[in-house]
């Protein structure tokens, strides 16, 4: 078993997810199975392979520094659950 309860809790915090107590064991096993499967890759000889940082054979896709119209503010805010005076409104940022 690679994945521990602590790993699960950590991943849950990082991804802002709440994992119900009765699901924890299931998820730990599933994550473990995924990681074990991924381990197959480590058997491939990568001695002479450069690390891939980008999958497509492309580089230097540039944009000129020219202003394009922005969104109307109403449109920009239209999906916001909370708004106030043209701002996106968000709940308390720092916990005490």
């Amino acid at each position: 078993m690679k994945v521990t309860k602590k790993d699960l809790e950590n991943v849950a915090v990082l991804s802002r997810l709440r994992v119900p107590e009765d699901k924890q064991e299931t998820y730990i096993q599933q994550m473990d199975a995924i990681l074990t499967y991924m381990d197959n890759l480590s058997e491939v000889d990568t001695e002479n392979v450069k690390p891939t940082t980008y999958a497509l054979p492309m580089s230097n896709v540039f944009r000129e520094d020219e202003v394009k119209p922005s969104l109307d503010r109403e449109a920009a805010l239209s999906n916001a659950p909370l708004k106030e005076n043209g701002y996106f409104k968000v709940p308390k940022v720092l916990e005490d």
Binding site: V67, K68, A76
Partner: peptide, 20 residues
């Protein structure tokens, strides 16, 4: 303009008017 889009960078514009 901004680093990844054509929105203007000017300082002091009304809130959320330089967004896309």
């Amino acid at each position: 303009t901004k680093i990844f889009c054509g929105c203007a960078t000017g300082f002091g514009a009304d809130q959320n008017t330089h967004v896309c």
